[in-house]
Simulated scan of single mutants.
Amino acid sequence: MGLQLESRDGRLRGGVSHLGYPSAVATRHHDLVDVPNFVRVGTFKEVQNWSEYTEFLTGWASSAEWDCSFKRITEAAGIVFLELEERSRIGEFRSVVNSVSIYEFTADARIRRVEVYLQMELPSSG
């Protein structure tokens, strides 16, 4: 079983019961992703290919609780901008961020690139 998402009132909730990396995540979405050419640029400008991204996502998803609210989805000429408010918890650490993910698509409508940008409050010093 892979990453589960359910929609309620414009919100998504993510959970993982058993991902079984790499087969459940990495091979399940080949029809949606240009796997040989896929690039993800993360919030720290780290660059990952499909295999590295699915390994990262599997590790994160198996230890985190996550949900979000949609703000806006915009599409223009092979690019989709997804704006969310994301809420996550890993152990006792809680986070609320605004995110923008930019998806670039191939001519045959598969994802070839994702860039992720975050906006968050300054941490309290205390």
Score class of each variant (00 low, 15 high):
residue 22 P to C: 04
residue 61 A to E: 04
residue 58 T to V: 07
residue 9 D to M: 09
residue 65 E to F: 07
residue 52 E to W: 01
residue 26 A to S: 10
residue 12 L to S: 15
residue 43 T to L: 03
residue 48 Q to T: 12
residue 20 G to T: 00
residue 65 E to R: 14
residue 9 D to R: 13
residue 24 A to C: 11
residue 67 D to A: 08
residue 8 R to E: 07
residue 55 E to I: 09
residue 16 V to L: 08
residue 60 W to H: 13
residue 51 S to C: 08
residue 72 R to K: 15
residue 21 Y to F: 15
residue 74 T to C: 13
residue 22 P to T: 02
residue 18 H to W: 07
residue 41 V to T: 05
residue 11 R to L: 11
residue 42 G to P: 00
residue 37 N to G: 13
residue 56 F to P: 02
residue 5 L to M: 11
residue 10 G to K: 05
residue 67 D to S: 15
residue 35 V to G: 00
residue 36 P to G: 02
residue 75 E to F: 14
residue 49 N to E: 01
residue 35 V to Q: 01
residue 34 D to I: 07
residue 69 S to K: 12
residue 24 A to Q: 10
residue 17 S to Q: 10
residue 21 Y to V: 05
residue 60 W to M: 14
residue 70 F to I: 13
residue 24 A to L: 12
residue 70 F to C: 11
residue 27 T to M: 06
residue 6 E to H: 11
residue 47 V to D: 06
residue 73 I to W: 07
residue 14 G to D: 04
residue 22 P to M: 03
residue 19 L to H: 10
residue 47 V to Q: 15
residue 24 A to E: 06
residue 3 L to Q: 03
residue 34 D to C: 07
residue 28 R to G: 01
residue 63 S to L: 09
residue 57 L to A: 13
residue 36 P to D: 02
residue 19 L to G: 13
residue 43 T to Y: 01
residue 25 V to P: 01
residue 13 R to N: 11
residue 15 G to R: 15
residue 34 D to L: 03
residue 16 V to C: 06
residue 16 V to E: 02
residue 66 W to Q: 12
residue 27 T to G: 06
residue 3 L to D: 03
residue 46 E to V: 04
